[in-house]
């Protein structure tokens, strides 16, 4: 089995749900695919992000906002376990995300 990080992207302009309840599609997804989900979280909007960049001379520069400005922003993630990429993609397709997801294999460091 291999681990994959499924990064969930949404449109910046999309309305953030502010309640604490998970939406019904996500609840259904988590029930259906529970066996493959190791971990996951929904994130606060990018306007709440703080980025820290190394300045190259031992210090840091701390700025307001996400690391990379773009129309698509990271809204949450799942860490999943799958037999191969095909299975991972099958699970990832079922994530009821706004605009789509990115699937990245997790590097195994021994």
């Amino acid at each position: 089995m291999s681990k994959y990080l499924v990064l969930i992207f949404q449109d910046e302009a999309a309305k953030q749900s502010d309640g604490e309840d998970m939406s019904a599609p996500y609840q259904e997804f988590q029930q259906r695919r529970g066996a493959s989900l190791l971990n996951g979280a929904a994130l606060q909007p990018p306007s709440t992000a703080t980025s820290i960049r190394r300045d190259g001379v031992g210090g840091f520069s701390v700025t307001d906002g996400p690391f990379a400005e773009s129309k698509e922003t990271l809204g949450g993630y799942y860490l999943i376990e799958a037999g191969d990429l095909d299975e991972a993609l099958e699970i990832a397709k079922e994530v009821p995300a706004g605009i789509g997801v990115e699937v990245r294999p997790v590097r195994m460091v021994s």
Binding site: S2, D84, L85, D86, A88, V103
Partner: peptide, 14 residues
């Protein structure tokens, strides 16, 4: 290798 793209004939559905 890294993403484990399978060495397999896809399922009938795909």
């Amino acid at each position: 290798a890294a993403a484990h793209i399978p060495y397999r004939v896809p399922a009938a559905s795909e």
